[in-house]
Design a protein around this nucleic acid. Structure first.
Lengths: 339, 339
DNA sequence: TTGTAGGCGTTATCAG
DNA sequence: CTGATAACGCCTACAA
């Protein structure tokens, strides 16, 4: 099996020096046309490709962006990646993706691995476990070693760095207001436990909207779900006794399961109970009834995050540090699950 | 902003040689306990991490596996990645994911980028465009440069390399047989155009099952869909005139859209028309009715692919080349869309 | 016990 | 026009 061809080998074969080969391949005017052509032909023949590793070592940069997400099996994150890739590729960067699987340890390991040579900077959404433990030493460390990090979606308030988020609270208000505008008054929320930053913010938005509309806040209309696995039974229990006319679910799965439970109860969506979700994924789009949702514009988030990161990477060293937080607008996508 | 600490810097600070530092950090008995402790304390303090780039260059291997998939926004592929990551991490490998977005050019670029230093070998499912163009030079090239490739799912018959597939044809037969066993006789298939290898194989399986059961094959019961975008209208047109009692859809989206169209026609699933899909994704699971499908066991595919690759990577150089094709069993997941 | 030197593949600088 | 040399960060055989 052939091995990768190096400058050295080409040089030996052609009986010239390594630097001659290097220059010839770069079309340097220093080298005679004759040699240039000879070298290039030979390189082509042997399919020479410069070794990126060596280049990275030499240039002390890799021209690649590391993306670290909690779950790869998650439509929202994959759309974000799409946005990142688009911008990155335009600017000549490659994108490497790693998933933490919501595990703190894996997040640390992956970050350290990428940080020790594979990427120049990071776009990251923190793992559930990390939000719980509030241990951010790995992030601080990589930043203190000169590698910028852009946090997105599941961010950390205490960290000083670039951030791209949506206004979760506002999005939740939009959702809730939409329900109110279509005549609902008994609006329940199915949300996550509070340590998930986005869940908490969305809950707050819901509360704010109710208050602004002088609708009584009922604690028993708030369901906080810990684990995705048993969410259907949790929702079934929750809805068994309530007579709500609308539900705001902070993610797709909760919304879908709510529909399921309601249908089992013989209730019609949206006529008996309207439902609105958050995150515009495949489920919402293809479900029957298709779900009204708040879109997070994942692709745009990714694109903005990539821009922020590349700006930082390409900023002159002496530039004063300055961190931005970009807030992406959410939008309401009306479909069949609300009136 | 601090920079990354190198052996050199530590050596200078401590006024010893670089190799002393290197050895001390490895707890080499060559170095006095005293020096060792001093060095290690210092390294810890400055959070020294060996530079992977330098290590890769030196060892001529990166200990990372490159995974290249057609679409990251695709549940099946993400489950495969899960399997790869599991095995890889166990064996001390890291995983880098790139998506080709079904574009031939992006596949080439990404592969070349990873091949020129970032990964030791690849697990890959080819892009749609690549299957169409039948241009595999990039794959042949990386293999000829000594980097093994394991193909999975959308493979290339002509390529000589390790492969992990499911028996698409057999899976399709299982699906079709299930429909037949539950009393259906007028079974349509919604499939892809033929250049998608897995689509073609599944179509073949469907045909085989019908033949084996002496059921007439009707060309007008076969719908080949080119693009996902307009599949709903295509399916609607297709179903408008037919009176089938079952549909086998070669992927989730086709299955879901078939249900949608049927419901609009006022038909009941599974009572009027039974539906079975392929690929066990979130949609199938959460849809109402939940969809009976053929599971591809993505995680197992990923795990097996990773094993094959690592075996090859760690095989002694002189070992004779030998390529395996692993066929993963599919299984029928019965849910509510069939009788 | 510690240090020196060479090399992994590349490029830039400088000398011939 | 061409080539030698040093450097990027690390490791290791060998020398001191």
């Amino acid at each position: 099996m052939k091995q990768k061809v190096t400058l050295k080998q080409i040089a030996k074969e052609l009986d010239v020096s390594i630097s001659t080969v290097s220059k010839a391949l770069k079309d340097s005017v220093e080298i005679s046309l004759d040699t240039r052509q000879k070298v290039k032909a030979f390189a082509q023949l042997y399919n020479y490709k410069p070794n990126n590793i060596a280049l990275s070592l030499k240039n002390r940069k890799t021209k690649t962006i590391g993306v670290l997400i909690p779950e790869i099996v998650h439509h929202f994150f994959t759309t974000v990646i799409g946005g990142v890739e688009k911008v990155a590729n335009e600017k000549g960067y490659n994108v490497i993706i790693c998933s933490s699987n919501n595990s703190f340890d894996k997040e640390v390991i992956n970050l350290e691995m990428l940080a020790s040579g594979s990427a120049d900077g990071f776009i990251l959404s923190v793992a559930k476990e990390t939000q719980q433990r509030k241990d951010y030493h790995h992030l601080e460390e990589t930043m203190s070693q000169g590698m910028p990090i852009v946090l997105f979606d599941r961010i950390i308030d205490e960290m000083v760095c670039d951030k791209v988020i949506i206004d979760d609270s506002k999005g939740a208000q939009t959702a809730t207001n939409h329900l109110i505008a279509t005549g609902c008054r008994n609006i329940a929320i199915i949300t996550t436990v509070d340590y998930i930053s986005v869940g908490k913010l969305r809950t707050n938005g819901y509360l704010k909207a109710l208050r602004a509309n002088d609708i009584e806040i009922r604690e028993d209309y708030i369901l906080k779900i810990e684990s995705i696995e048993d969410c259907e039974t949790a929702i079934a229990d929750f809805l068994a006794t309530k007579k709500v006319d609308a539900i705001f679910a902070v993610n797709e799965l909760f919304a879908v399961n709510a529909v399921k439970v309601l249908q089992k109860q013989g209730k019609k969506v949206p006529d008996d109970v309207a439902i609105i979700g958050f995150t515009d994924g495949i489920l919402s789009k293809h479900f029957i009834p298709s779900l009204t949702t708040i879109s997070q514009h994942g692709e745009e988030m990714g694109a903005r995050a990539a821009k922020l990161l590349i700006d930082k990477l390409e900023a002159p060293d002496h530039e004063p540090e300055e961190y931005r937080t970009v807030i992406i607008d959410t939008s309401l996508i009306e479909r069949a699950s609300t009136k």
